[in-house]
Amino acid sequence: MSRPEEIAPPEVFYGDTEATKYTQNTRIQSIQAQMTARALELLALPEDEVAFLLDIGCGSGLSGEMLDEEGHIWVGCDIAPSMLEVALEREVEGDLFLHDIGQGFGFRPGTFDGAISISVIQWLLNADATSHSPTQRLTRFFTTLHASLRNPSRAVFQFYPSSDDQVHMITSAAQRAGFGGGLVVDYPNSRKARKMYLVLMVGSQEVPKGLDGEEMAVQGKNGVGAERKKEEVRNERRRRKEEGKSRKGKKETTGKEWVMKKKELYRVRGKEGVPRDSRYTARKRRVQF
């Protein structure tokens, strides 16, 4: 899977060509629409009521279009001017802002009934300028967002973390800003369909469950996920203990195995002049005397 955030900063990556490509690609369109629909579902807005929403990283308005269809009034912000231009051409209904979300929002407290963001916040983890500090930007983003949301309300972020550390960084920043909630993983057993949603809540509410084919997996900050992790840790410890016991007995490796292992290790480390393997490797020598 390619990761655009490793290639260039967002405002550079989503230049004119990439912006039109992004918007005309029917596959991206359908995926974005699906994710927006799911995000809206997780947002759990009261039915038949028009809400005032914030679309964080609205891009060319693919997600905004869905909000229009639902009849919501929305405000979108994005850092890539080319994407916003495409959004203007597509005549989306929402108000658009050229805005770096890492700099925080200036909206008055309690403005929005909810916020959605599709495939955006992983960008915040990059430091694209010397003055950027991801933790600081995340904190600024979440605190100002928390302030601008109504109580009670939700913010749903679909994102592509590249590692568990990133997930941890984002969730802890959100927690520090005062958000409740947790991670919802849809289709956790499928590599392709797997989608992560960070559902943040202002005020006390319950975390919704993830979708899947047969079985559920919700990684809450506490509850099921934590319980399972504890279990795993215990198993791991037991396994290590047993391993230790057997090692104390007899050495299992033969001389040849040991030599092969060492040579493999040297090759992996890039050491020069490691002899090639042959049938003579680590052979037994006859006794000389």
């Binding site: 001017p81 231009e85 203007l88 658009l96 802002f97 050229l98 700099q103 925080g104 300028a129």
Partner: peptide, 15 residues
């Protein structure tokens, strides 16, 4: 073109 530029210079960004 209907889009306000809300970008701040580095020294104007809050912490």
């Amino acid at each position: 073109n209907g889009i306000p530029n809300m970008l701040l210079a580095e020294h104007e960004v809050g912490r």
